[in-house]
Design a protein around this nucleic acid. Structure first.
Length: 313
DNA sequence: AATTCTGACAACCGCTTCAGG
DNA sequence: GCCTGAAGCGGTTGTCAGAAT
């Protein structure tokens, strides 16, 4: 075996594809299909390995590919999905018709670079951090279209950030949970009951699956909640009315609170912009992560949250 | 005008997963 | 259940055009 384990052919061309090569591959695939990629190069008259042909077809040549810049909706969906499932590019791509995992991965990496490139906070004094804290909130509210509001007190911040009189719950069953939907639901029931004291079953909750997210509609005058970013206003709730703000099972999510707990203030900026008002405690490997998070969440009110910032930083 | 830098995206590499025998 | 080759996947590198210096 030579240098390239995937390729048995001796003369294998590498690098960018020429228009002639593209044409050969298109002509072959459109007339014969692609039953076995390792046979494609020889039959199509290409000096490439099958793997390269497959990649070229899937990421560039197939007819249903969608090209050009991502739309705002696509960007929001990518950010939202990435927060939910992490670097599972193929999974994310499955939610964006015509987009490839490679394309989304490239987009994400350059997006991240831009974020990192933004002036970051030095590890410095409390004074600096408090000032930055104000700017974080300002950034966040600007993102939410609350421009030009004077947010000088905690109650003003609270009223602005959480204006809707709803009680909400959100569960992200994530993809780390194995098994059937019924198993997942049972596990959620169990965790929820253990930690909230409330019984949740199919008699009292309506469960609607949406992608991998699960919406729960409470029987008691509440909720409408989806993690999709275009519906963010739906998850802005008055925290003192919230029994449980949200829960992520199996990890993968990073919330404002989570980052706060980890003293990752830069992350906090990013994720707060993505999921404003979306606070939760996290269940990873069946264990609550941090009493601090749990306490903030269960006693949840904005005052507790805000007053906890300096000590957490 | 020449060069360096940067961002976008195309392609590769190695590992994992899947499916058929 | 094991083996093997193909396909899938995600991290990483390469390429190149346009911007910046």
């Amino acid at each position: 075996m030579g240098h390239h384990s995937c390729c048995n052919q001796q003369k294998v061309k590498r690098g960018l594809w020429s228009p002639e090569e593209d044409e050969k591959l298109i002509r072959y695939i459109t007339t014969h299909g692609y039953g076995c990629w390792s046979e494609v190069p020889e039959k199509a008259g290409l000096q490439r390995c099958g793997k390269s042909c497959r990649l070229r077809w899937i990421n560039y040549l197939r007819p249903d590919i969608r090209r050009g810049r991502f739309t705002l909706e696509e960007e929001k969906l990518i950010i939202s999905l990435h927060a939910a499932v992490g670097n599972r590019w193929a999974h994310i791509a499955s939610h964006l018709p015509g987009r490839t995992d490679n394309e989304i991965k490239n987009y994400w990496n350059s997006w991240i670079k831009k974020k990192i490139r933004k002036p970051s906070l030095p590890t410095s004094t409390n004074t600096t951090l408090k000032n930055d804290q104000t700017s974080l909130i300002t950034n966040y509210t600007q993102n939410q279209g609350f421009l030009n509001q004077d947010l000088t007190t905690k109650s003003q911040v609270q009223d602005t950030l959480f204006p809707l009189p709803t009680t909400s719950f959100m569960f992200d069953i994530g993809s780390t949970m194995e098994g059937t939907s019924a198993n997942n639901n049972a596990r959620i029931d169990q965790i929820f009951q253990e930690n909230s004291g409330l019984v949740m079953n199919s008699d009292t909750w309506q469960i609607n699956e949406q992608a991998e997210m699960v919406q729960f509609t409470s029987p008691m005058n509440s909720i409408c909640l989806t993690p999709l970013i275009e519906n963010l206003e739906n998850i802005m709730v008055p925290l003192d009315q919230v029994q449980t703000c949200g829960m992520s099972i199996g990890g993968g999510h990073v919330s404002a609170l989570d980052c706060l707990h980890r003293n990752e203030i830069n992350e906090w900026v990013d994720h707060t912009q993505q999921f404003p008002g979306y606070f939760y405690w996290e269940q990873a490997e069946g264990q609550l992560v941090g009493e601090e998070i749990n306490n903030i969440s269960t006693s949840s009110n904005m005052g507790t949250l805000l007053s906890s910032f300096p000590s957490s930083l």
